[in-house]
Design a protein around this nucleic acid. Structure first.
Lengths: 387, 387
DNA sequence: CTGTTAGCGCTTTCAA
DNA sequence: TTGAAAGCGCTAACAG
């Protein structure tokens, strides 16, 4: 291994000078600097980040944990985050939680043990992920992305799922589809809980009817299983509202295989707008999450993290619900704050204490495609309705 | 930050003893050990891997670079590799090359700078990736997975693409589809080149005809573009053979949208068998790569990496081509070896010099679904044909 | 502006 | 067996 010492000797200077030249921290005599750089080049020297990190007590490295690398929504999030962090010279260490809180906790610890400067987390489970994340928050800057775990004293950047689901239901009801079925993931994570709650509220608000919700997992398999039950049960709804696109794709496949006309007999909607949503026949009406904005906001908060004032995001400012809401009360109430976020009137919320967790919500957009019928007052096919 | 020193003081022993207890390296008095463990528990001490790694000169960490985290084939590979490494106590650091050799080189350096013990790479570009990988190979154990870069002195674990493509063409020709079109990625990476070559060979061998190959990228967009050209050109082939499933999904979508009957008028095949291949209408006939076996073999080689004898893989031993081939000659010839691998008779290859790169090929399987018509001698719909 | 020196937190000789 | 001490490669005080 070639060390800084080797470079120093070859350049005929002290290691301190080498360090200064390479880090650009201090002014160094031009000629010396050149000698150092030559020597570095010649030896192919690269600084050892273990040593550097140990000494500096920072590594310019941030960790990111996602529930499932195989879910296209998360891989899109990973890509967006990665690009942004690279741009500012940070390295991202990715960890796959394999949809398992234990594996997630493990991964988080592995990251912490490597002295990351910050952590971006999409918690697997609203409760089971809390312990590991709370501990993590005690050691590094932590920002929750997309989902929140209960009681974790860390900011959350996510979209306004209530608005997203409400837009879907409004769209369907506008098309006179008034008997709905909701197929989603069980209330294990915060998005599933929020979407389920939002669905119930939307049903109540619009006065349509809904079959008992079918809650499983955010997977194609669950979508297939639920749709099979729907078809076999013989009580087809006028529309199936799905908690995410994977479920919707599973539902769609089963319905089409069973010869059910989509959207004529049954409409189907998804959530996330993953790339594959345009590849099915019919294509999938869904809710698009502004991934780049989410990534930018999360990274911004992470890098901050002292200019903690919840700046208004560059986009999505004209949402019906305030796009930015200060979190309420104490850290332990964070989950409650998340839960209530959509319901709180921003004007009533005092500027929170400096370090209280903040929730930043972005507005999603309804993307109307072929899996919902044409017509109706809310949106035409092909429309992209910003909320 | 709580250090080993804190634990030592609380336990009333020296740091050396703490280190010994925690690493389990040496025998330590039972009572002292217990005191140490209590202290650790009480303080929530975790060993600092920066310091430990710096001292030990190993980190029990391996890096993995993939061309695109968003490609489901690669995320499946990442998952399989991650699970296997976790099982043996290694941590994986994932890096996304963003399909860009420069970003890839950057990512590789970032990993090397962090003193990883080994690197698993799926090179983006057969030539442009060589420099960074060759350099990496000089510092850490390197294993190439799925793809190889030219001249890199490192083992390769991949599938026998020649056999895979040949099976597809045989299948189609067996169904009397004798006018083919090949849509794939340009010969930037080794798999694209191998598949293109295999296609040409298969066409020649079976005596069917083929339109000029349409080579772009391994993306849905390219599949769409190529299919649009095909439809607009008016010269529809009897079957479109695609270089991977993403392309095939794009082709399928465009054909179906254009009202072309699939598979009646045009059959379509993919490659990889990503999960989404079963979600389209019709479902996609494709070639499945044995991901778990690939991951196991690659990880095995990485961990090895001294028991370097090319052990016969547990599965896929009955492939028509030998599943395991020793690499030939010098490291600089590695690319040639890869290229010729399928064509070399294993019996002729002497046991290679201890450290010559080795190519380990696994047999893929043809998965017959609805995008190719029924009948024919080779495979029935629903079949899974091991090669 | 440059060099010397003292660690960062840990593992591992080397003595005791 | 245990402890003292050296040192992994680097950066940051502190002198000069």
């Amino acid at each position: 291994m070639v060390t800084m010492r080797d470079v120093a000797e070859l350049a005929g200077v002290s290691v301190a000078t080498v360090s200064r030249v390479l880090s650009g921290a201090r002014q160094v005599n031009g000629e010396l600097a050149e000698r150092v750089r030559d020597a570095q080049e010649q030896l192919g020297y690269r600084t050892n980040l273990l040593a550097s990190g140990l000494r500096r007590q920072r590594t310019d490295t941030v960790g990111m944990v996602v529930p499932q690398v195989g879910n296209p929504y998360f891989s899109a999030l990973m890509e967006a985050v990665g690009r942004r962090l690279q741009r500012v010279g940070k390295t991202v260490l990715l960890v796959d939680a394999e949809d398992d809180p234990a594996a997630e906790a493990d991964g988080i610890h592995r990251l912490l043990d490597r002295s990351i400067d910050g952590l971006l987390a999409v918690p697997v489970d609203e409760r089971a992920s809390s312990a590991a994340l709370t501990e993590a928050a005690a050691h590094v800057h932590l920002v929750q992305l997309d989902r929140a775990a209960a009681g974790v004293p860390a900011d959350l950047v996510a979209v306004d799922h209530r608005a997203g689901i409400r837009a879907v239901v409004d769209h369907l009801v506008g098309l006179e589809r008034r008997e709905l079925a909701f197929v989603s993931a069980g209330p294990r994570d915060s998005t599933a809980r929020e979407r389920a709650k939002a669905f119930d509220e939307a049903v109540a608000a619009t006065g349509c009817t809904a079959q008992p919700s079918r809650l499983g997992a955010y997977t194609v398999e669950w979508g297939r299983a639920a749709a099979t039950a729907l078809v076999d049960g013989g009580r087809l709804p006028a529309a199936v509202v799905c908690g995410n696109d994977l479920i919707a794709l599973g539902v769609l496949a089963v319905l089409v295989e069973a010869g059910v006309q989509v959207p004529e007999r049954v409409a189907v909607t998804g959530y996330d707008d993953i790339g594959f949503a345009t590849l099915t026949r019919p294509t999938l009406t869904t809710v698009r999450q502004p991934i780049d904005e989410l990534a930018a906001a999360a990274v911004g908060r992470l890098l901050h993290a002292s200019s903690a004032e919840p700046a208004v995001p560059a986009v999505a400012t004209d949402a019906p619900d305030p796009a930015v809401l200060a979190g309420v009360a104490s850290p332990v109430d964070a989950a409650g704050a998340v839960d209530a976020a959509g319901a709180v009137d921003a004007a009533d919320v005092p500027v929170a204490a400096q370090d209280a967790p903040t929730v930043q919500r972005f507005a999603p957009a309804l993307i109307v495609r072929d899996s919902t019928p044409v017509g109706g007052p809310v949106a035409q096919r092909g429309d992209e309705v910003s909320l």
